[in-house]
């Protein structure tokens, strides 16, 4: 992997504001085929806003987005999906009172029949959905007609990821996909990310866990208050430096030391959070 391959998806000086609130500022970012971009940053840094802009949910206020070097504008998530961008958003994504099969194909329903009398192909949807989640290691799901609400939080998250993997032809965006997952499923997500990279997809991966970021990231971008504070390749920084950047610029060692010091003098209690 070198910088000579054309980026699949690129942001050029993108700003995003909601009314008077500026959330993203001058974001310039590239993600290449066969590369995992880890998007790091504190809570509220603007990571979800950034990927929602990439997946067509938000329109950039200023700036330009390019796909395969050509400028693109997505009028909505459908167009981004059609361009091969599949996203697992941080929250939601599954509907408890709908079946596994219907959940899997939400917005992209397989149909049979002709003309205007198209019918949702329930058997096909169920078969594909069950196979996809079983491949994901959730072998408890054998019936695509089962309501999604009966699944655990992690199983539902796995369903959402399996769906994105199924539909993501070019770009796979995962917003904190491992947050609700157990150790085994989280490891599986990391394997999936590795697999997607091997198949030549561009992956954008958001996480707060240094371990996960280090395990799959080729390229790291750190967002602080809506601006890119650091952008580097895996081999350019040490593990400690990356951990420090993820903590919002403060040195992790200092942070740990201060907590330890506090705990020593306060009967082992952690310090109250500072405002």
């Amino acid at each position: 992997m070198t910088d000579t391959t054309a980026p699949v998806l690129e942001m050029k000086a993108v700003d995003k504001s909601f009314g008077p609130i500026d959330v993203l500022h001058e974001i310039t970012l590239k993600v290449r085929a066969g590369e995992v971009l880890c998007l790091l940053g504190d809570n509220g840094a603007g990571k979800s806003t950034l990927i929602k802009t990439l997946s067509g949910v938000h329109k950039p206020t200023r700036g330009e987005m390019l796909m395969d070097g050509k400028p693109v504008t997505f009028s909505g998530p459908k167009e981004a999906q059609a361009a091969g961008i599949a996203t697992v958003h941080q929250f939601g994504g599954t509907y408890p009172l709908m079946s596994v099969g219907r959940n899997f194909f939400i917005g992209q329903e397989p149909t049979k029949g002709w003309g205007p009398f198209k019918v949702f192909d329930r058997h096909k949807a169920n078969a594909i959905a069950v196979e996809a989640v079983q491949n994901f290691g959730i072998t408890r799901i054998t019936d695509g007609d089962r309501l999604c609400g009966g699944l655990s939080g992690g199983e539902r998250q796995s369903l959402a990821i399996a769906r994105a993997v199924h539909f993501g032809a070019r770009v796979l965006i995962l917003d904190e996909p491992t947050a609700a997952l157990g150790v085994k499923q989280a490891a599986h997500v990391l394997r999936i990310v590795g697999e997607a990279r091997r198949r030549g997809l561009a992956v954008i991966f958001i996480t707060h866990q240094v371990m996960h970021a280090m395990a799959v990231g080729d390229h790291f971008a750190v967002l602080i208050r809506g601006a890119i504070a650091a952008d580097f390749r895996r081999d350019e920084k040490s593990r400690e430096e990356i951990a420090d950047l993820m903590a919002g610029g403060e040195s992790m060692a200092d942070l740990e030391a201060s907590i330890d010091g506090y705990m020593d003098t306060h009967d082992g209690h952690a310090p109250p959070p500072t405002a």
């Binding site: 997946s55 949910v57 909505g76 958003h89 929250f91 939601g92 509907y95 709908m98 939400i106």
Partner: peptide, 12 residues
């Protein structure tokens, strides 16, 4: 079921 997710999924 979930308006926000439906919007994210590209449903008008």
């Amino acid at each position: 079921g979930d308006k926000e997710s439906a919007r994210n999924a590209g449903i008008p």
